[in-house]
Every structure is written in structure tokens, then in C-alpha cells.
Simulated assay, not measured.
Amino acid sequence: MLETMSAISGSFNTELINSIQEGKKFRIVGDNINFNIGVTNERKSTGKAGHMEHWFGSAAIVQNVSFNDCSDTIPQCNLEQLPAEQFIMHDNDWKVITSDMCILVSRVLTDFFPWLNFAKSAVSNEIQGGTPLKMKLKNTVIPLQIQHKNEQKYADVVDILDTYQDLGETLYQGSGLQVPQIHIGGDQLTRERFSGAKRLRAAALTASERFENLSPITFELFHVQMTVLATFFDILYKADCTEPFTLYSQKVRLLRKHAEGKDVKNHYDSCRDLAVSFIRAYIVEATCQYFDLKNTDTAPENLPDHKNMTNNEIKHWMTTFVQPLV
């Protein structure tokens, strides 16, 4: 087993070295891994009936896009002179957002209204934006060792950064290259811990001990979806509100007992599924009311002759059809 583990771990380093030799850079991200240990899983008495373990997991993400043309020291513009209009939504921005929302609503309607089946393929294509092709490609993610360290302790965080520094030196020196700046990060708490641990080593004797190669330290958007979902439940989830079609009443009606809206963090999957079902149901109900339809099988008048239409024409008709709902 140990030989197998060594062989597998070595393959990860090889994959990173190959990426470096191809001229690609990588960044390292990490976060705590928390799990409960019950009595039946304990090998010896710890003085507690059960306890929570805090380990630390990391991964190297190989970047598909290079920003070598951007300076590391000079900003692209003077932020003090940046006009406020750059941050304000313009009419064209709202048109793009509205168009994208029409596509998303159309996808829901084609799932529930049989007479819209002809439009399913037309609105299922990827929503096109201004994102470069390279940024749409999936990044190679290489898992690193899980460490029995807790980011809540600065001594452990220093040890974690030591492994990152050693990894960078091993990889780049193994490729015959000088160790560059290595981008690291995590969620906002991890970023703060990394920055604090680096400050603790600021007076060390060598560049490696000062973690000079570990820069910049940024936060990752790990928890954006959870934050959005938690905000959604904070606004709409009221346990004392049982009126029909409220979020709590739908939870009871659909028997989603694990969708605990007051603790989204620990019930994320169940809360997400309830929110998706709730939003889709509202879209269907709003469509029936707006077009005065008795049920999803009732088709409105003046449907187009889709047999003689192209996909682009069907897509245009569909977005126009649902725009009043959006």
C-alpha cells in the first residue's frame, strides 16, 4: 500500500513539472477539512464522547491563461482617477443581463410546457459572453497532500506554507528553472491566516524561510454560491409563515425536512435543491397567470410555425415570448 501511495503521489509532481516545462504557471489553494469523529471510530480514549478533527487540504491549479504582459508592480490604471462610470451598469449591460435571464427562464419553460418542446434545443446552447476561449477551458487540478494541520493555529499555518515553499523549490529546481512568485490563496479566512503566517516569518534569515516566493496571497470565491443561497433564505425563509407558496410552506409540502433554512452552511445541498424547485415552480406559475393558461398543457394562441424556422429564429421568438415575465 505504501509503495502504491508513493507512486501515485509522485505522478502528481510529474504532472506539475510537465506543466512548468510547457511554460504554464500554477496557483495553490487550500482550506480546512473539518469532520466529526464518533465514539465508534475512535481508536483510543480522548476524554470526549466525540470530537471534531481539523485537517488541511490543498490543490494546485494549472493556469490556462498567462498574464505575463501585466506588470507585477505597476497597476493598469490609477484607481484614484478611475471614473465612477466604470462601476455603473449601462443600458447595454442591462440588455445583456435581461437577454441571459430570458434564456434561463426559457429553459425552465421548455421542461414543463409540452407545446414548447420545439424550442428546447434552441435555448440549450451555452450563453455566449465576452470571455476568451482559453478561460472557458477546464483547468487541470492536481490534489496535494492532506496535512494534519489546523488553519486556526498560526503554528500550523506556518508549517503549511513551509510545504508550499518546499514544493515550489522542488518543482522548479527539478525543471532547471529559478523559483518564481507562486500565487496562493483560499477563502477569506485562509487568506488572512496565510498573510499573518508570512508576517511572522518576515525577520527570518533566508528567502525560503521568509516565504518570499509565496506571493500574491488572494482569496478564492469558494463560498459565493453558499453566500447567495444563504441570503436567499435570509430574505424568504420564515418558519412562522405558512401561507401557501411561501418558501417554508413549500418545504413542508414537499417534505424537504433536511432543508434547514436557518443553517444553510450545514445543509447546503438540501437547501439548494429546495430553492431550485421553488424558483422553477414560481416561473411556471407566473407563466400560467400571465398568459391565462389553465395548466401546463394549455397552449396560448398565435404559436409560430416552428417547422419553417431556424434555431436562431426560434431562440429570438422564445426570448421575446418570455421577456414580459423577466
Rank of each mutant, 00 (worst) to 15 (best):
K44H: 05
N125W: 03
L177V: 11
K134V: 11
T140L: 14
D273M: 14
Q323V: 05
Q147F: 06
S270D: 10
I37E: 05
V108A: 00
I184F: 04
A59G: 09
F112S: 08
V284W: 05
T98I: 01
R43N: 06
D156V: 04
D166C: 05
K294F: 11
E22W: 10
M135Y: 02
M101C: 13
R27A: 14
F56I: 01
Q76W: 15
N266K: 09
S249G: 13
D91H: 09
N36I: 12
D269L: 11
K134C: 11
L229S: 06
K44E: 00
D162S: 01
S66C: 12
K25C: 11
K294R: 14
G174F: 11
F35D: 07
V108L: 02
N311V: 04
D166V: 03
T242G: 11
T170C: 15
M89Y: 12
G261D: 02
I142A: 02
G23Q: 04
K24S: 06
P180G: 08
V252M: 11
P324W: 09
K136T: 01
P244R: 07
E22L: 14
A281I: 07
I20S: 11
P75W: 09
I314S: 04
G185P: 06
L144N: 00
G176S: 15
W317E: 02
E301W: 09
G30V: 01
Q152D: 04
L293I: 12
A60L: 09
F232I: 02
L167Y: 02
T14W: 03
E3N: 08
V276A: 13
L189C: 01
D93Y: 05
H54C: 02
L16N: 00
A207I: 05
A299H: 00
G196S: 05
N311Y: 12
L109M: 07
V264I: 04
L16G: 05
K138D: 00
T310P: 08
K257C: 09
D297Y: 11
S19T: 04
L236W: 00
K95F: 08
V157W: 07
G185S: 01
D156Q: 00
C102M: 06
S215L: 03
T246H: 08
R43C: 00
L104G: 00
W55C: 10
V39I: 10
K95V: 10
E243N: 10
K257G: 09
K265H: 02
T246S: 07
D72G: 12
E260F: 12
P244D: 08
I160Y: 03
V65Q: 13
H316M: 08
P244G: 02
M1P: 13
R201Q: 06
R193Q: 06
H90T: 14
Y268M: 12
L133S: 10
P114H: 14
A84R: 12
D69M: 10
M101F: 14
V29K: 03
V284R: 07
T320C: 09
L189Y: 06
D93N: 13
E220W: 04
M135P: 03
V326F: 09
R280M: 09
C102N: 04
T310F: 03
P143D: 05
L214H: 00
I88F: 09
L161P: 01
V65D: 13
F219S: 08
H306K: 06
D100T: 07
E313D: 01
D263C: 10
K120D: 11
Y282P: 03
